[in-house]
Write a protein that binds this DNA or RNA. Structure first.
Length: 811
RNA sequence: GCGGGGGUGGCGAAAUGGUAGACGCGGGGGACUUAAAAUCCCCUCCGGGCAACCGGGUGCGGGUUCGAGUCCCGCCCUUCGCACCA
């Protein structure tokens, strides 16, 4: 515990008192309030908003927020008007499941969680403008989420279709493909089944190409951009038509049209719509049995069981290249939701087809030969190397390279109306329907006479009713359908009785536009104000977890692009710069309640103070890498703040600042100023500690001018104590309005340096030399040094001189 | 299987191709103190040596270079994504 003051001596650092004082002062002075209309040099610093869990804020949240906060405060010190809002992403299955579990209605639970979060967030000293917050579950927010839905609906970008969807039998809800991890529910781990339901989709796949192309223009971490690129999964190839008698034509997507002469059979996904027509009476029983099995099988079983299975339909199709009939099979290794749901199988040049052909004894034909091979060289495995391959067994295309043949064969088949070049994307349309309670109702009304009608904008929001039986059941119909007084509503077009859509929308829609809402959060009349949006968006720097690298960020980009195309906003990319913070783990595992390794930040802030805890989290390691949380070492950071306190309270205005200390100071200003924008917080803190060691060396009492800048530099990390010390230094305004200390190159310059001297690349000594020393002078000094000279045996062949760093004598 | 991180002291970690281990924790010793706390000073990669110094050292094996933790090739381990995507 800090010592009590005696006889007018300075009182030691008491974080609890300091932090309480400044929390109150910031509120009273509205220090964090932003003048959105008038602020100069606007800078929008955004952090991903949290889901307010019942467990409260955990160390991982705090790590993420603190990193953003430091950047925001730094930009403010540099003279920007910084807008850093924060809100709550509180709809969704998380809350609902938890509510069901503890038997507390989400409408009662969420406000309680939010209040607790707010308390913890306030304590952490974040520079957040709480007058501009959002809560996705507040009707004043989701009114506009529904408005966003209507924008897409009105422009043909929202549609309904019956689709095989992932159904979690435990959560009793539909999951997006992205929420299915290895065939199991992302949230509860239960194996997912397939169900056919009417679902609302957004046509994000129409935007695949733009979403892909714009990536190169964004200042985002490479890992994030790569993840998005892979997710979009652009693949160039051809769509080929295989005539299948009375059943029609089977369309396939292939990236290897050059191998069409080697297509010896075809495979359709079991769910493919042409299967019925293709199945012959003799095969029907087998085909039906296989399809039934496939439909019962979830994705896991399909993937875990790698052995190829399948059934012959009894029909044949004509290979458009060879004119030969080839059998048509169904097999679950072909997926209905990629390409056309059907493939031409080229066992000679595709590993999966090879395996299947081997199992069922189907013919394997070589149509590409590698170096030293010819048309007759047997295939022990699929030959997939295509760089040096030449076509064989392919009629007039023999001898062509793979690349040439791709073009030539596609063109040739195109002339016959049997093929065309296509680009295929892995990205699917975004299913936004959820047959659950805890979300914004989708604003659609069904009328027997008029069909589906959008809810008129003036009738928004469609308020989620406060009902007691909100639990989902096994019917696949939303709980909202059970409430007649809500469900029945007049058709907005004809006025007759209609029915409301009972699905609610995906939480990714809530978070897909929230950054647009913050600056206009107090506006009841519009989703976002045009002028304010023009001034503040796009977001300058966005910080969040890489677990949202694909979904949230991609959906946000999509919504932004759509709103741009509708002229609601003037930009099409929402986040100019994005950086993913690392993950804080504990004992080698991600913190989770089930693992019982969640660290509650309250206890650390109690013991060490919020400032020390913030600084410690940032000192743990590189911000973008995260790290293992352990409390060893927090004392070092606290000691640093204690020493800063002592240095400041002892600072004197007598005399002049020390030249050497000022040199170190300016070197520190330079380093910290470079490190913070790079989010290299750990090294910035190390530099500040180094400066503190210089400042306090030998218990010297520092000069005011030596201390003031360090208080400013520490302030992004430890805002409360910095404010207190700034005040003690005689300032009446907030340290955050004091500017960033100015850097003077001439004051940072050293007049002598340590020069490493090597002989044949091995370090043999160091010399202290004047900064501007020439190579010859340095060489002479080195040779005069016995410990160095003794290694210089024989004639000097070469000398490498790196001014200010090293001299290497090669003999 | 494919793709991206990452392997450096007892620990967390630093290092534009240029003195490996800054900064911090932990450990050891000392000053101050009646004593303790706080503060300040010194030591702390490994081996050898009283020391000056010498040798070795960044997962493993090669290579490029005057010089490699850093670049190149081939492996091993680890971690996170994606995964029968035609």
């Amino acid at each position: 515990m800090p010592p009590a003051g005696e006889g007018g001596a300075p009182v030691g650092y008491d974080p609890a008192a300091v932090e309480e004082k400044w929390r109150a002062r910031w509120t009273e002075r509205a220090t964090n309030r932003v003048d959105l209309a008038g602020g100069e040099r606007p800078f929008y610093q955004l952090m991903m908003f949290p889901y307010p869990s019942a467990e409260g804020l955990h160390v991982g949240n705090l790590f993420a927020f603190t990193g953003s906060d430091i950047h925001a405060r730094f930009r403010r010190l540099q003279g920007h008007t910084v807008f850093q809002p924060l809100g709550y992403d509180a709809f969704g299955i998380h809350s609902e499941n938890y509510a069901i579990k503890v038997g507390l209605h989400p409408m009662r639970l969420i406000p309680r969680n939010i209040a607790n979060f707010r308390r913890q967030l306030d304590r952490a000293g974040l520079m957040v403008d709480w007058s501009q917050s959002v809560d996705t579950t507040d009707p004043s927010y989701y009114k506009w989420t529904q408005w966003v839905f209507l924008q897409l609906y009105n422009h043909g970008l929202a549609y309904k279709k019956k689709a095989a969807v992932n159904w979690c039998p435990s959560c009793k809800t539909v999951l997006a493909n992205e929420q299915v991890v290895a065939g199991a529910c992302e949230r509860c781990g239960t194996l997912v089944e397939q169900r056919l339901l009417e679902q609302w989709f957004f046509r994000i796949s129409d935007y695949a190409e733009r979403l892909l192309n714009n990536l190169s223009t964004l200042d985002w971490s490479d890992t994030t951009r790569t993840a998005q690129r892979n997710w979009i999964g652009k693949s160039e190839g051809a769509e080929l038509r295989f005539a299948a008698g009375t059943a029609g034509h089977i369309e396939v997507f292939t990236t290897r049209p050059d191998t069409v002469f080697g297509a010896t059979y075809m495979v359709l996904a079991p769910e493919h719509p042409m299967v019925d027509a293709l199945t012959t009476p003799a095969q029907r029983a087998d085909v039906e049995a296989y399809r039934l099995r496939a439909s019962k099988q979830d994705l896991v079983a399909r993937r875990v069981n790698k052995e190829k299975t399948g059934v012959f339909t009894g029909s044949h199709a004509i290979n458009p290249a060879t004119g030969q009939p080839i059998p048509v099979w169904i097999a679950d290794y072909v997926l209905m939701d990629y390409g056309t749901g059907a493939i031409m199988a080229v066992p000679g040049h595709d590993e999966r087809d090879f395996e299947f052909a081997t199992v069922f004894g189907l013919p394997i034909v070589r149509v590409v030969a590698g170096e030293g091979e010819d048309a007759a060289t047997p295939l022990a495995t699929a030959f997939v190397e295509n760089e040096k391959g030449r076509l064989v067994n392919s009629a007039s295309f023999d001898g062509q390279t793979v690349a040439d043949a791709k073009r030539a064969i596609t063109a040739w088949l195109g002339e016959q109306g049997a093929g065309k070049s296509v680009v295929n994307y892995r990205l699917h349309d975004w299913c936004i329907s959820r047959q659950r309670y805890w979300g914004p109702p989708i604003p659609i009304i069904y009328c027997d006479a008029c069909g589906a009608q959008p809810v008129p904008e003036k009738d928004l929001p469609v308020v989620l009713p406060d009902i007691e039986d909100y639990r989902p059941d096994d019917s696949g119909i939303s709980p909202l359908a059970r409430h007649a007084e809500w469900y029945h509503v007049a058709c907005p077009k004809c006025g007759k009785q209609g029915r409301r859509e009972t699905d609610v929308s995906d939480t990714f829609l809530d978070s897909g536009w929230y950054f647009l809402r913050y600056p206009s959060a107090t506006r009841g009349d519009v989703a976002f104000d045009a002028e304010i949006t023009r001034k503040w968006l796009p977001v300058n720097t966005y910080i969040g977890g890489n677990e949202h690298a694909v979904l949230h960020l991609l959906y946000s980009r999509f919504i932004t692009m759509v709103l741009h195309d509708m002229k609601h906003i003037g930009f099409e990319e929402p986040f100019t710069k994005f950086r993913a913070h690392g993950l804080i783990i504990k004992e080698g595992a991600k913190m989770s309640k089930t693992k019982g390794n969640v660290v509650n930040p309250d206890q650390f802030m109690d013991r060490w103070g919020a400032d020390a805890f913030r600084t410690y989290l940032m000192f743990l390691g590189p911000y973008e890498e995260g790290g293992d949380f352990r409390d060893a070492g927090i004392s070092g950071v606290r000691r640093f703040l204690d020493r800063l306190w002592l240095a400041t309270t002892e600072a004197t205005k007598d005399g002049a600042p020390d030249e050497g200390v000022m040199r170190k100071l300016h070197q520190t200003i330079r380093k910290v100023g470079v490190d913070i924008p790079r989010l290299s917080y750990n090294t910035a803190i190390a530099a500040l500690m180094e400066y503190m060691n210089t400042l306090r060396k030998g218990e010297r009492s520092p000069h005011h001018a030596e201390v003031e800048p360090v208080v400013q530099m520490v302030s992004p990390f430890a805002p409360h104590v910095a404010e207190e010390l700034w005040e003690q230094l005689g300032h009446s305004k907030s340290v955050f309005d004091s500017g960033w200390p100015s850097f003077d190159e001439s004051l940072a310059r050293e007049d002598s340096v340590q020069l490493a001297v090597q002989v044949n690349g091995k370090l043999r000594g160091t010399l202290t030399v004047p900064v501007g020393i020439t190579q010859d002078e340095a060489l002479a000094l080195a040779q005069a040094e016995a410990n160095i000279a003794k290694f210089v045996t024989g004639a000097i062949r070469k000398v490498i001189f790196v001014p200010g760093r090293l001299l290497n004598i090669v003999v």
